[in-house]
Simulated scan of single mutants.
Amino acid sequence: MNATVSEMWDDLNQAFVISGEAGHDIAAREALLDRAMGEGRRRKSSEKLRRGRMPSAGLAFAARDENGALVGTVRLWDIRAGRGASGAHVPALLLGPLAVDPAAEGLGIGSALMRHAIGEAARLGHGAILLVGDPEYYARFGFSGEKVAALAMPGPVERRRFLALELKPGHLDGAQGILTPSGRRAVSEQQALRLTA
């Protein structure tokens, strides 16, 4: 599903379109992530949940400028958010990385990608999205640390930056434990590197 958000920027003569990520986006996405996030991006705790996995079906998005160049990216990944009160695994999504080309910052691309990703995750019936990020930015989309008090990432993380948004009220009630990956495995090592880097 494509969403055109260019009407937001008509007065600035700037436009971008959000669509599903395509196979030919790999090199451009990797270069964008390197520019936006630096070399340390592969050492983050959230990478342990993405490594060797594919993004959740239908939940990898690209923002392109009016020339078709990739200017933003976001992906969501299938995870288990610990176990619930019944002892069953709690399915959820992990968002990230969200990145915008530094040359295109301040145009609303990151916000548009977030709204699109949240909307699509809800449309597909997912119950919650978790992420590690600045609460000052993500609070505007409804994320908070309230529902993750009894959950943990599989590595070090600054606690105040561990956030969640319930798409279905009560989905994370009683969830506790360490987040684990549950998404589709990449079919080859090369595909895994391309999809999780």
Rank of each mutant, 00 (worst) to 15 (best):
R123Q: 09
A152R: 15
A186V: 11
A15Q: 13
L93K: 08
S46A: 14
L131P: 02
P135L: 06
D34E: 14
V74C: 07
N2R: 12
I129L: 03
S144E: 07
A60T: 06
S111C: 02
V100K: 08
D25C: 05
S45P: 02
A92E: 03
L124M: 13
R42V: 14
E189T: 14
G82W: 06
G174N: 10
G87H: 09
L131N: 07
G58D: 02
P156K: 15
I109F: 02
P135T: 04
A81S: 10
G72F: 06
L94N: 03
G68I: 10
A85D: 11
K168F: 00
G52Q: 11
A60G: 05
I109Y: 05
Q191N: 02
G145K: 11
H24L: 03
R50W: 02
E39W: 01
V157W: 04
R75W: 00
D101T: 03
M114H: 06
G38T: 05
K168G: 00
R140H: 11
V17W: 02
G82N: 10
D134N: 14
I79V: 15
R123F: 00
D34N: 10
G72E: 09
A31S: 14
A103Q: 11
A31Q: 15
E189L: 14
E136L: 11
V74I: 15
G106L: 12
G142L: 12
N13I: 03
E39C: 01
L193I: 13
L193S: 10
F162S: 07
R53S: 02
H116V: 01
R123P: 00
